[in-house]
Amino acid sequence: MITLNHYLWVSIILFSLGILCIVLRRNTLMVYMGLEMNLNAANLALVAFSSFSGRIEGQVLVVFIIAIAAAEVAVGLAILVALYRKIQSVGTDDVRVLRG
């Protein structure tokens, strides 16, 4: 019998791997991919809660999250490309313009 906890475990493991991706990799593209994994883990938890409690609101929230995530990725990658034009790198350690 698959319970709510099974889905939440999958969600939290996916979230942890997303955090690991953000912290460990030195590549801004990989950081974005880790962010996507985090958002998807949250979506999975919301859908699981929604489905197991019989309320649709969780799934409605997921629709909004997916729309905002798409906008966020578009803007983020545009910033990345603009940054690459300036400093010819996507490493997280090479971005020091904002450092005071």
Partner: peptide, 21 residues
């Protein structure tokens, strides 16, 4: 697909390094 497009746009020599902090 947007991700792959941007990876293609950037220099593969720079982003293919095994970069761990």
């Amino acid at each position: 697909v947007l991700f792959l497009f941007v990876i293609m746009l950037l220099d593969p020599k720079i982003i293919r390094r095994w970069w761990f902090k």
